[in-house]
């Protein structure tokens, strides 16, 4: 009854709360871990030491190159119709403003369509997007492409409503992308509250003027590492089940939820299995990715280096959407593999978490999934997750040790059983 032993140890036994306490120690010590920052490299070195001290196998760092962008000093002040200092967060990879900033009238739009319809009005203006939140996957396009679309019609800068399910006046940062041949303009996220207020002001015909200052700057790529630790397989060591989370974060809060939780339940999964003296037939490999927030940069280089062994990967797992109380496992794979995973999840009956949903995914494992490797991720409270996501509220206070215990138990049972079954998961 390996599954029960893992669950008891993780949720009721001496290992309960360990993932939370380990995470708190790291994020309290280091803080947030932006790609290219010293904080991130310090965190990697700390984790390298932690994993060696934990006695895991083949602990090593795989070198990669990652983007190095810094936020600098930034501010946005509404000058008309009244003075109002706005909370903003520059978006990742944005350029800065001139030292004196950009002072311009605002055009408020609620969609790309409206921007196109009112294109003549956008020239020489700061475009404010007040797009409604539908789902993160759907709404994030405004954050990612908002600057490019506005630049195409002559805007000077963009201020984009935070992509968030709930807001207490806290901006949500994130990556954005420029496009070759389109002028680069500064872009930042604003709070849901300010976006809605400006929308109301505009609908009453009020003229809105904002002064935007951003010291953002991009530097040459920096050196970093993906952090790897294993429990080497006893029978088929060349075959792999990959368990992962990412160690980098945005420069907000402590980077506890995104993705300290995912990284530390992945470590916890290996620790639990080791504590029980278990060794699966296949190798259990944990990877803590670097520079996920800039688009899976570390993970892509890992995939390029290791894809030659793709036929030996039975399952790739990433936890990167919260470690609140899981409601089930998200899975992508063949029908045959899915019914096997449904059997595996029955082992979590003691925790009453047995569902297998579709849509197993993760920025860092999607390369493998798109190439045909079965993939899994955790399904939990996404409304709560996106309330804290990429904000200064992403701290240990948003985390729950008991829920992390359950998430770690689920992660460990799934990883161990799939790694120990006689056959790999079948593919299409």
């Amino acid at each position: 009854d390996v599954a029960k032993a893992i669950i008891n140890l993780a949720v009721y036994g001496k290992s309960q709360n360990r993932s939370y306490e380990r995470l708190a120690l790291l994020v309290d010590t280091v803080g947030p871990r932006l790609s290219g920052s010293k904080n991130l490299e310090k965190a990697i070195q700390i984790m390298y030491q932690n994993l060696q001290e934990n006695g895991l196998d083949n602990v090593h760092l795989e070198p990669v190159k990652i983007p190095h962008w810094e936020r600098g000093e930034e501010s946005a002040v509404m000058l008309q119709p009244r003075i109002h200092k706005m909370a903003i967060l520059g978006l990742g990879s944005s350029i800065g403003t001139p030292p004196e900033g950009i002072t311009a009238e605002v055009l408020v739009v609620t969609s790309f369509n409206e921007l196109q319809q009112r294109a003549p009005e956008a020239k020489g203006k700061i475009v404010v997007y007040n797009q409604p939140y539908v789902t993160y996957a759907e709404t994030v396009q405004y954050r990612v492409q908002g600057a490019v679309e506005a630049a195409k019609v002559g805007a000077l800068a963009t201020l984009i409503r935070s992509v968030a399910s709930f807001s207490i006046y806290s901006p949500h940062t994130g990556i954005q992308e420029y496009q070759d041949g389109v002028p680069k303009i500064p872009t930042a996220c604003i709070t849901v509250e300010d976006a809605e207020m400006m929308s109301r002001m505009a609908s009453h015909g009020l003229k809105i003027v904002i002064q935007l200052k951003m010291g953002a700057k991009t530097y040459p790529d920096a050196d970093s590492f993906n952090t790897v630790a294993e429990i080497t397989g006893s029978k088929y060591p060349e075959q792999v089940v990959l368990v992962s989370g990412h160690l980098d974060s945005w420069d907000v809060g402590q980077g506890a939820l995104d993705d300290g939780g995912g990284a530390f339940i992945s470590w916890e999964a290996l620790s639990l299995i080791k504590d029980l003296g278990l060794r699966p037939k296949r190798t259990l490999r944990m990877v803590l990715w670097t520079a996920e927030e800039q688009g899976g940069i570390g993970a892509y280089q890992y995939y390029q280096l290791h894809k030659v062994n793709i036929s030996n990967y039975s399952l790739v797992m990433e936890s990167d959407s919260g470690t609140f109380l899981p409601t089930g496992l998200q899975f992508t794979g063949s029908t045959k593999a899915r019914v096997i995973m449904e059997e595996v999840m029955k082992l979590l009956q003691p925790l009453n978490i047995t569902q297998v949903f579709s849509g197993g995914e993760g920025t860092d494992i999607n390369f493998w999934i798109q190439a045909g490797v079965p993939g899994a991720s955790i399904c939990d409270d996404l409304y709560k997750y996106f309330s804290f996501h990429h904000t200064n509220g992403d701290t240990m206070t948003a985390m729950n040790p008991k829920e992390m215990n359950v998430a770690a138990a689920l992660w460990a049972v799934v990883a161990f059983v799939v790694a120990d079954m006689e056959e790999m998961l079948p593919r299409e």
Binding site: I340, E343, D420, M424, P426, R427
Partner: peptide, 24 residues
């Protein structure tokens, strides 16, 4: 070596089901 490289399982689903149940 019961590995699954060419897409053909060596085992029936019932066997796999029993194998998984043994972990519970």
């Amino acid at each position: 070596k019961a590995i699954y490289k060419n897409g053909i399982s060596q085992r029936t689903f019932e066997e796999i089901k029993e194998e998984i149940a043994s972990y519970g």
